[in-house]
């Protein structure tokens, strides 16, 4: 059985439509208008034990809501899910001892105390055997290089150091499933890299199941073989990271270096000109036409160097999100539009 099974999971909220101005606010005291926000609209997903899966999606896509549902913090409006055979929102202690949730934007350690005091509290709450506790703590602190910071009040730590402490606290009870909600948010490149390195190593040696949400493509590229893209509460892609380019990008980037100083004047007929600095040019060419365009360029001009590349992943994803947003507007106006193909 899969470690995580999700079937038609739904979560909607009723939110108060606040109107502008004092008069409208006063009227709102007596009569309120509510709007239903569908944060998660019928998600189906299976994650095997030991997988490291990334959730990608724009803000408000439903990623965090899904993680909160799987952690049992909130209850769904419909559908089913089991994690390690438990229904998360029943909040059984047997389940709560087996997973952890780390949120990059929130901290759970006692702010004014050294982290080690919070760790001891975790030991009591999770009923961790003292010897196991000491071993796990020392191991994690060494891996994350934070042993010397254990005595320092959490409020005096840098953001990166604090995130390492949060991760340690979350892993003290050796969870089988770990949910990470933007663990590297706000961190500098070095700190991000350190966290990535740690997560990769830890996941490899422990073989635990990890679901990660992040806006940093580097996190995802470094850690996850499988990527699930969520937009508007629905899964629109489930596959490899590189597969996103094939599935969502309709074009390739053709870079040409012409021989001599003279540049052809009619480059636009091959495709959209992205960059033109003699003797080099970058063109955006339709994926289906790339072979034809390439052979005509080579036939018609003296070319010194040529390369065909996929557009940068970030760009593809931004484009995909933008397209999805546009679909939303179209959806609202007219009949539903077919979702992009999933692999």
């Amino acid at each position: 059985m899969s470690a995580i099974q999700i079937r038609n999971l739904q979560k909607s909220y009723r939110v108060y439509q606040k109107k502008e101005g004092l008069a409208a606010s006063l009227a709102g005291l007596f009569r309120r208008e509510y709007r239903t926000v569908e944060a998660v609209k019928g998600i189906d997903l299976d994650v095997e034990g030991g997988e490291f899966v990334a959730f990608l999606g724009p803000n408000g896509a439903g990623k965090t809501t899904t993680l909160k549902l799987l952690s049992g913090v909130i209850s769904p409006t419909g559908g089913e899910a089991t994690v390690l055979g438990h229904v998360p929102w029943r909040r059984e202690n047997d389940y709560r001892r087996r997973f952890a949730l780390v949120m990059g934007q929130k901290n759970q350690l006692w702010w004014d105390l050294p982290a080690q005091e919070s760790f001891k509290l975790h030991q009591k709450i999770y009923r961790i055997d003292p010897a196991d506790f000491a071993r796990t703590r020392d191991e994690l602190c060494e891996l994350l290089d934070i042993t010397r910071l254990l005595q320092q009040p959490v409020r005096e730590l840098s953001l990166g150091e604090r995130m390492k402490m949060e991760l340690t606290a979350a892993l003290l009870h050796s969870p089988d499933v770990l949910f990470l909600d933007e663990p590297t948010i706000g961190l500098d490149v070095v700190a991000q890299h350190n966290i990535q390195k740690f997560l990769k190593h830890y996941q490899e040696i422990r073989g635990i199941t990890i679901l990660l949400t992040s806006h940093y493509m580097k996190d995802v590229a470094a850690l996850c073989k499988r990527v699930v893209v969520i937009a508007r509460g629905e899964i629109i892609y489930d596959g490899s990271l590189s597969g996103i380019v094939d599935a969502f990008s309709g074009h390739k980037v053709l870079s040409v270096q012409f021989a001599g100083e003279r540049m052809p004047g009619d480059l636009a007929r091959y495709g959209e000109v992205l960059e033109e600095v003699a003797p080099k040019a970058k063109l955006r060419v339709d994926r289906t036409a790339i072979a034809k365009v390439l052979s005509s360029v080579l036939a018609e001009h003296a070319v010194e160097d040529v390369s065909v590349e996929d557009p940068p992943l970030e760009e593809v994803i931004a484009e995909m999100f933008a397209r999805n947003q546009a679909t939303e507007v179209a959806d609202a106006a007219a009949k539903p539009v077919a979702a992009p193909p999933a692999t």
Partner: peptide
Amino acid sequence: GLDFALLKP
């Protein structure tokens, strides 16, 4: 912050 309280066994 109540999220964290709800996670604890």
